[in-house]
Nucleic acid binder design. Structure first.
Lengths: 137, 137
DNA sequence: TTGCGTGCAAAGGTTTTGCATGGCA
DNA sequence: TGCCATGCAAAACCTTTGCACGCAA
């Protein structure tokens, strides 16, 4: 996991540690860069993008594109896939990306496969709408 | 529908005619620009974006960010979007966008609202996965 | 005439690439 | 030592914005 075949560097270790600690959150490349720019030993933007690319490729990080002009969001999920199945719900009003844990998800997955032949990759799907807080506000 | 309250221009007519003829396909802004750049009377990129923005706002065009990443995709749906609810399923293998009619959609919509407070805008959501044809191939 | 629509140019912001340097094995 | 990783700078990219002009009503 992480770096395939190459060297293991200080930047890789620190980035991975930060991502692991942020499991379940959604971070942009800018968030990560800002976090490390405060440290004594910052990590270059290029390196962040290149490492994220690798991690997305090997499946330990997921990448979401929410709106154009906005930056992509990255979510650490780890190789162990410990995360319970959950919806990603993007509130179009406040802009937050919510996690909704729900067993309906598995049911829908099964339905789509058995009745429509579609093997749904639910981890990649983002549901757009308006969250409860914004509806009540 | 199309332009609210303002003037009706040549560009609006031609763009709308092209979109109507492309119903069911997804086009990028570049696709549209390229199509008109070949004509005697091209349409400026700015105008294309601004008209698409209007059409998305009034609901006759939907905008998708497919994980292809770079540019947004636009799909003309017209005024008849009050028909049976259907999923948009994007096959990650063949690239097609499938329309899956299913009343489970309404059930999920109701569940998300009542149990999670989330008012799902199902028309904007794209389900990623692998379609039946590609799975059997 | 009024003022919206158009489109060129330039800005805005995110992500990628070129290339010299640094660091791991 | 060999080679990959790093990171600065600059490019590439899509999309938006500023502004003067044109055109519909």
């Amino acid at each position: 996991m992480g770096s395939r075949g190459g060297y293991r560097t200080r930047q890789q270790e620190e980035l991975l540690a930060f991502l692991r600690a942020s499991r379940g959150e959604h971070l942009t490349a800018a968030d990560i860069r800002d976090h490390f720019s405060g440290c004594d030993r910052p990590i270059g933007t290029t390196t962040i993008y290149r490492q994220l690319e690798r991690l997305v490729e090997d499946g330990s990080v997921r990448r979401y594109l929410l709106e154009t002009g906005d930056s992509a969001c990255y979510e650490y999920v780890g190789a162990d896939q410990l995360n319970a199945p959950h919806f990603h719900c993007k509130c179009e009003r406040c802009g937050r990306l919510l996690h909704v844990s729900c067993e309906e998800l598995s049911a829908l997955e099964a339905h789509l496969l058995s009745h429509h032949g579609f093997a749904w990759n639910s981890g990649k799907t983002v549901f757009y709408g308006v969250c409860g807080e914004c509806r009540n506000a």
